[in-house]
Simulated scan of single mutants.
Amino acid sequence: MELIHLESTDELYKEALDLRYDLFFRSPGLPRKILFDALECSSFHIAAVDNGSLCAYGRLSEESPRIFKISQMVVRPDMQGQGLGASILTKLTHEALEKGAEEIYLNARCRVPHD
Rank of each mutant, 00 (worst) to 15 (best):
M1L: 04
M1N: 03
I4K: 15
H5E: 15
L6R: 05
L6P: 01
S8P: 10
S8R: 15
T9K: 11
D10C: 05
D10K: 03
D10L: 02
E11A: 11
E11I: 05
L12E: 04
K14R: 15
E15L: 12
A16R: 03
D18V: 06
L19H: 03
L19C: 01
Y21M: 03
D22W: 08
F24D: 01
F25C: 06
R26L: 09
R26H: 14
S27R: 15
G29K: 11
G29L: 08
L30H: 15
I34A: 07
F36A: 08
F36E: 09
D37F: 01
D37N: 12
A38S: 15
A38V: 07
C41M: 14
S42A: 11
S43Q: 06
S43I: 05
H45F: 12
I46G: 07
I46P: 01
V49N: 10
N51Q: 14
S53L: 10
L54W: 14
C55Q: 13
A56M: 02
A56E: 03
L60K: 06
S61I: 00
S61E: 03
E62G: 02
E63M: 14
P65D: 14
P65Y: 09
P65I: 01
R66D: 14
I67A: 08
K69H: 06
S71L: 04
V74W: 09
V75I: 07
R76L: 03
P77M: 07
Q80S: 01
Q80E: 00
G83L: 11
G83S: 09
G83C: 08
G85H: 00
A86L: 06
L89Y: 12
T90W: 12
L92A: 10
H94E: 15
E95F: 00
A96K: 01
A96D: 04
L97P: 02
E98W: 00
K99T: 02
G100W: 02
A101E: 00
E102G: 03
E102R: 13
I104K: 00
Y105N: 05
N107W: 13
R111D: 11
R111K: 13
P113M: 11
P113H: 13
H114A: 09
H114F: 10
